[in-house]
């Protein structure tokens, strides 16, 4: 079972690398923001999977909760910042 979770962890890391390409290339600023948010959500999943692999689940769940909250706050803050500011066409 743990080798199965190891394979799943490798898959999720590869998906994160795919999304990091969009973060790097993203034509507009907003692409980078949502790609960053997706990297964050993949980070939560990675945290939980590592928690399963090291079977210290209760510690990693707290980190995942904190990270999920921070990730959400980040996007809301950036959205509020861009609300009144005219985004220049990049």
């Amino acid at each position: 079972m743990s080798s199965f979770f190891l394979a799943i962890t490798v898959c999720v890391v590869l998906l994160t690398l795919v999304i990091l390409y969009r973060v790097a290339v993203g034509k507009t600023v907003f692409d980078r923001i949502i790609a960053g948010n997706m990297v964050g959500t993949n980070g939560i999943v990675l945290l939980l999977l590592v928690g399963i692999l090291f079977n210290r689940m209760d510690m990693f769940i707290d980190i995942a909760i904190a990270y999920a909250l921070l990730n959400f706050i980040f996007v809301i803050a950036v959205a509020k910042y861009f609300d009144h500011r005219k985004a220049e066409k990049s």
Partner: peptide
């Protein structure tokens, strides 16, 4: 606690997407 994170993600992710898309639409 994992159930709490699941419910929070189900609420937070669409809200964040809505906020960022509204900001993008408004900033042209």
């Amino acid at each position: 606690k994992l159930l709490f994170v699941m419910v929070f993600i189900m609420i937070a992710n669409p809200t964040a997407t809505h906020a960022i898309v509204k900001a993008a639409l408004k900033s042209g």
